[in-house]
Write a protein that binds this DNA or RNA. Structure first.
Lengths: 127, 127
DNA sequence: CCTTGACTTGGAGTTAACTCCAGGTGTTAC
DNA sequence: GTAACACCTGGAGTTAACTCCAAGTCAAGG
């Protein structure tokens, strides 16, 4: 698959795909004879994984380290697990924060709602 | 309250507090005669609110607009509610994304876990 | 009174994660 | 076969949100 197809499939710009490759977040993609990227299924699984992790805010640096360990093979499993444990912890913390904020937003919206209803009533009363 | 006390209370650096003020995210804080910031209770409520919203990733620009409307008074309630509705929608979307990622992390960690148990068994078998 | 540390301002620097650009090559539809 | 478009690379530019700095003022303890 060519870069634009991958770009459309995963909704990641071609610039970003090339960027991910050049910083080593995904390993170098094979090129055709004329030098054009030809993504394999495995390449795309990696892209998908990275997209997912990035969408949750995992830092690129951490993902670079992690992906490098994946490339290195089974001897790195313990380290990889450590990385994911750490990231999971941070992620749950972030989610919790956001849920607290969400509740405050809910409350504020509801307050505004009832204030607006009050205002309506007053207007009606003076008609 | 002086800036450093506020900084410690909310765990926001003094630099960030001053930055928020200068970009208009919180209105200008009163100064003592000698020009030193003296935060009121209301100032601190604002700081707390901004901190909460920022921790959930709401963009500063949106918060500036929102806070300006708050200053403007009750006539802006409908607009404020619209802003919060929009932000709430985006926030729930982000939370959902993160929860999907969390599940994938959980799965991956569990796979690594069982791989490690397998390796343990093999080692024990060869002893 | 003088030192030490907190405070002030305006402006510059940093960081992460893209995003864009220029200059060149390859390919495909007519 | 040529115009239009996708692709390549290396490097520069952008954006959001801080964070740091310099040069100066102010306040409290000894």
């Amino acid at each position: 698959m060519k870069i634009q197809e991958v770009s459309e499939k995963f909704e990641i710009s071609t610039d970003t795909l090339r960027y991910y490759e050049r910083i080593g977040l995904i390993p170098t993609v094979n090129r055709t004879e004329s030098g054009i990227r030809d993504y394999t299924e495995e390449d795309m699984r990696r892209v998908d994984f990275v997209k997912c992790m990035r969408s949750a805010g995992l830092p690129i640096e951490v993902l670079i380290d992690y992906m490098a360990l994946v490339q290195k093979g089974d001897s790195t499993i313990a380290t990889r697990k450590e990385i994911l444990l750490e990231q999971r912890e941070q992620l749950t913390a972030r989610i919790e924060e956001m849920q607290k904020t969400l509740e405050i937003l809910n409350y504020k919206i509801q307050v505004y709602e009832s204030k607006m209803v009050e205002t309506e009533k007053k207007i009606k009363g003076t008609e």
